[in-house]
Computed example of a mutant assay.
Amino acid sequence: MSKRIEVKDLNVYYGKFKAVEDVSLTIEPRTVTAFIGPSGCGKSTFLRTLNRMHEVIPGARVEGEVMIDGKNLYDADVDPVLVRRQVGMVFQRPNPFPTMSIADNVLAGVKLNNNKLSKSDAEHLVEKSLKGANLWKEVKDRLNLPGSGLSGGQQQRLCIARAIAVSPEVILMDEPCSALDPISTLAIEDLIEELKAKYTIVIVTHNMQQASRVSDKTAFFNIAGTGEPGKLIEFDDTTTIFENPHVQATEDYISGRFG
Rank of each mutant, 00 (worst) to 15 (best):
E127I: 11
G259L: 15
V56N: 05
M1D: 11
L145P: 03
A19Q: 09
E175I: 07
W136N: 00
K131V: 10
Q209N: 05
P245N: 06
A60D: 01
D104F: 09
R257E: 07
T250C: 14
T250I: 15
D181I: 11
K196H: 09
V56K: 12
G149L: 11
E21M: 01
K131R: 15
Q86E: 12
T239R: 15
K43N: 10
V214T: 08
P96R: 11
K18L: 15
L143G: 02
T31P: 01
D216M: 09
P96E: 04
G153M: 06
L143R: 05
A133N: 10
P38F: 10
I164R: 06
D174Q: 08
L180M: 13
E123K: 15
Q154W: 02
F97I: 15
E65P: 06
E55K: 02
F35G: 08
G153L: 01
K18Y: 04
D121Y: 03
E21Q: 11
V204L: 05
G225R: 11
V214W: 07
T218F: 10
E55R: 00
G153K: 00
S255V: 15
L10R: 13
F242G: 06
K18C: 15
S215M: 04
S44N: 09
A103N: 08
L112M: 14
K71P: 12
S120F: 12
D174K: 10
N113W: 13
K198F: 09
L47P: 05
I171M: 06
Q154Y: 03
V87Q: 05
A179D: 06
E138C: 02
T33K: 02
D190C: 08
N134E: 06
E228F: 12
L143S: 04
L191S: 03
R93P: 07
K198L: 00
V106C: 02
V66I: 13
R93A: 12
G225D: 00
L117Q: 12
G132Q: 06
E138G: 02
I203M: 04
E55A: 13
P38W: 01
E28C: 08
N114T: 04
V202A: 07
L145K: 15
T26L: 04
A60C: 14
G59S: 11
I160L: 08
G256C: 14
A19F: 09
Q92V: 08
F242W: 00
N207G: 10
D174H: 08
L172K: 02
H246G: 12
L82K: 04
